[in-house]
């Protein structure tokens, strides 16, 4: 770990001033960034801690939505009473992630921006286009159990590992940021992360030094919320495949489906094809299956993660079935 400067500003303006300094990074809980710094995968010269910024915690928005400050920890967010009541899929997603100890540290902003768990990305002795553009992708012909099946490129097959971000994508959350020059903007959670293409070194649409200040959730959708996470052990494992679902059924027809997948792509994967296939349909096994097939039609995997294509289909169907059962029982 190389020597760093540690800065702890107490206002967003001061933080943006500090981040403009050469090669600085924000630090939230540090649960991802510090690990990567020890491995010298991340090598900032300075860290700007966001904990003393007042980013607002929780508040209700005008449109009956919920605003969440970027500093809110994963534990606090998961246990917030409005999140548990109105955005349950988010609470379930958070609680399925990592461990209590990690969730107590991890922040909302940091969770969005955590980096891939790709083994080769974390090993500076191996080629990785994300870490070192142009060096190649060691995952393409090596063990690749945790890699992507949708939206991959010849340059990178990494996944985004977050559970929280998958639920946020399903809920159409919006991310509110300030660029290093102070300008504010809003980015949809579904648009925050990008596909790797030929620039896998760029994870998100954010600019260098752009601060996530808050996330807003739109007015509650109602319906049944469910997060189904399939993993290699029963806790403390990243998702092989996950599905965040909000489902509303009225008069035997699907009125609303929000479906996002985790563990399958370089970004939380909003399953628009499946959603379209289900709109107005009866909640039957055949329709669920057809929706899953539609979503995975373009899935590709050559390596040891090829099984995830079938697993993703099954996970979608299982999650939809369970949500529909609960919705019908309600």
């Amino acid at each position: 770990m190389k020597p760093i400067e540690y800065i702890r500003p107490d206002s967003a303006d001061a933080a943006l001033d500090a981040i403009r300094a050469e090669n600085a990074k924000f630090i939230g809980g540090g649960t991802n960034l510090l690990d990567l710094m020890k491995l010298e995968v991340e090598t900032p010269d300075a860290l700007v801690d966001v904990h003393r910024l007042d980013m607002g915690g929780f508040s209700d928005t005008d449109g009956n939505g919920l605003r969440i400050g970027a500093e809110v920890t994963n534990t606090t967010l998961a246990n917030n009473s409005r999140v548990r009541k109105d955005y349950r899929v988010l609470s379930e997603a958070l609680l399925s992630g990592a461990t209590v100890q990690l969730r107590n540290r991890a922040t909302t902003g940091g969770n969005f921006l955590q980096r891939t768990r790709c083994y080769y990305f974390m090993d500076t002795t191996r080629p990785c286009n994300k870490r070192e553009p142009g060096s190649g992708c060691a995952a393409l012909n090596g063990p690749s159990r945790i890699h992507a099946i949708l939206g991959t490129s010849a340059h990178c097959i990494a996944t985004h590992p977050s559970d929280m971000a998958v639920a946020m994508a399903a809920l159409d959350a919006k991310i509110h940021t300030r660029k290093a020059d102070g300008a504010s903007r809003t980015v949809a959670a579904t648009e925050l992360h990008r596909l790797p293409g030929d620039t896998p070194q760029i994870d998100t649409v954010l600019e260098d030094g752009e601060l996530i200040e808050a996330v807003t959730l739109p007015a509650p959708l109602g319906g049944t919320h469910l997060y189904r996470k399939v993993r290699d052990r029963s806790s403390y494992a990243f998702a092989l495949v996950s599905a965040a679902i909000v489902l509303r059924i009225a008069d035997g027809k699907i009125e609303t489906t929000r479906l996002a997948l985790g563990g399958v792509a370089h970004k939380p994967w909003r399953a628009e094809k499946a959603e379209a296939r289900l709109a107005g349909q009866a909640p039957t096994e055949e329709n669920f299956q057809a929706a899953a097939e539609a979503e995975l039609a373009d899935a590709r995997a050559e390596g040891s993660h090829a099984f995830k294509i079938e697993l993703a289909k099954r996970t979608i169907v299982a999650a939809l079935r369970e949500a529909a059962d609960r919705e019908n029982a309600a």
Partner: peptide, 25 residues
């Protein structure tokens, strides 16, 4: 533990990716 046969090194070299049984297992 997965060996990368291209190098002879192991790839899942931490307790997040090498899965020992946890309490819930």
């Amino acid at each position: 533990l997965w060996m990368d046969e291209r190098t002879g090194g192991y790839v899942n070299r931490d307790l997040a990716e090498y899965h020992v049984a946890v309490n819930r297992d």
